[in-house]
Structures are given as structure tokens and as C-alpha cells.
Design a protein around this nucleic acid. Structure first.
Length: 206
DNA sequence: ACCCAGGCGCATG
DNA sequence: CATGCGCATGGG
């Protein structure tokens, strides 16, 4: 039972997850996805959705508006997502970076080679490995596997505990077909099974 | 009343 | 490297 088998099992049980969900800017979803990834840090998606809704209502789902928006007003929208002072700062910094370097256009950023792009995201304050990889995989459609706490838990259950984020990422990427779709679906499925209180997959693994 | 949620920065051994 | 702490709201 390797991790690709686990993927197939999860897919059988939970079906396609339709990640990353985009409710508002369907024509240019990258920025909404990136903002969502930052807001979702250690926070339930339900609470993130409330903030996204408020941002949309105030026409703040674009870099320029976030840069212009008074801190207090932005904080008000982000309150429900938790850590709202930090996250306000994170959105401001991310938007400034995007505006200054790429004219606010993520597509220009994603032209960069994957490793270079990842390093650049990681150099931005407020963006760590999981957020960077989520942005690359879901907003940029780049082949990189996202590791989160559910993923580590799953590995622990399979007796494949590793030391670092990069080690987990290497483990998945070297044992799966290099497919963006599979990376996107697998991470979403791991989250779905992690949230599933009934833990339908447990018996299969052990 | 606790515990957790689609983490990260920073300060210390 | 790895551990610990602060950040903060909302639902079990």
C-alpha cells in the first residue's frame, strides 16, 4: 500500500474535491486563491469564507484596492479569519510585492521557473512553505505538492514520519506521477479525510 | 471550559 | 534542526 494507492482509495471514498474553490473572480482566480491561502493559515475555511465575502463586497479582491484600503477597514473584514492584525499586514505586504514587481499580475510572476518562484514567495513576510506551495499549485498550476498537518498525520499513521517539510514533499513527489491534477486532488482529499470524523480510510491503511 | 482549524515569524538551545 | 511562544476568531 503506497501513497499512490492511498490516493486512489481516498478518491474512491470521497470523490473529486473541486479545489481550490473560487467564488468571486472566476475569470482571474489567482489572486483570490492566494489571498484565501494566506487567510486559511491555521484557520477553518468557514471563517475564511466570511472574510472573502466581505472583501468582495468592498471590492477588495485585487492588489491595488488592498494597498489603498485603510488598515482599520481591512482588519474589519479579516476579523472572522482570526489573527486579523497579522493577516491584514500579510495581505498588504503580498499585494505590495505583486504590484511593485509584476504590476499586480500574478500571471507575470508565474512565468518564472518553479524553484525560483517558490524561493521568491518564501522570501515574502507571512508566506511559509504551505502557503507558497498552495499558491503555486492552485493559483499557478505548478507541479508542486502541498504538505500540511493532515498530510503529516496521514504519514504518521502509515509509519512514514519524516523530519522536515521538504522531506515530506520529496516523499510525495517522488512516489506519485508528476501530475498537477493529481497533486491538486490528492492534497484536497487528504484535507477532506482529515476533517472526516468517521475516518473512513483508517481501516484501509492499517 | 477546553480543543481544534487548509501556519508563520521569531527567539532560543 | 527542534522546541516554544504569540497571534485570534468561531464551532465542536
Amino acid at each position: 500500500m503506497d501513497i499512490f494507492d492511498i490516493y486512489k482509495e481516498l478518491y474512491e471514498i470521497y470523490g473529486p474535491q473541486k479545489w481550490w474553490p473560487v467564488k468571486y473572480n472566476k475569470n482571474n482566480p489567482g489572486f483570490e486563491i492566494s489571498i484565501g491561502a494566506i487567510l486559511a493559515q491555521n484557520t477553518s475555511w468557514k471563517n475564511v469564507e466570511k472574510s472573502l465575502e466581505c472583501l468582495n463586497k468592498n471590492n477588495l479582491l485585487n492588489p491595488r484596492s488592498i494597498i489603498k484600503c485603510p488598515t482599520k477597514k481591512l482588519q474589519k473584514c479579516l476579523r472572522s479569519a482570526g489573527y486579523y492584525r497579522q493577516k491584514t499586514k500579510k495581505l498588504k505586504i503580498f499585494s505590495n510585492w505583486l504590484d511593485m514587481n509584476f504590476g499586480g499580475d500574478l500571471k507575470k510572476f508565474f512565468i518564472k521557473r518553479l524553484i525560483i518562484a517558490r524561493k521568491e514567495l518564501l522570501s515574502i513576510w507571512g508566506i511559509g512553505p504551505e502557503t507558497a506551495d498552495s499558491i503555486l499549485l492552485y493559483a499557478g498550476n505548478k507541479p508542486i505538492f502541498v504538505i500540511d498537518s493532515y498530510t503529516k498525520r496521514l504519514c504518521r499513521q502509515m509509519h512514514h514520519e519524516l523530519a522536515t517539510y521538504d522531506a515530506y514533499q520529496g516523499y510525495f513527489e517522488s512516489n506519485l506521477p508528476k501530475s498537477i491534477r493529481i497533486y491538486q486532488e490528492y492534497h484536497a482529499l487528504i484535507v477532506a479525510s482529515g476533517k472526516d470524523k468517521h475516518k473512513k480510510i483508517c481501516r484501509k491503511i492499517n
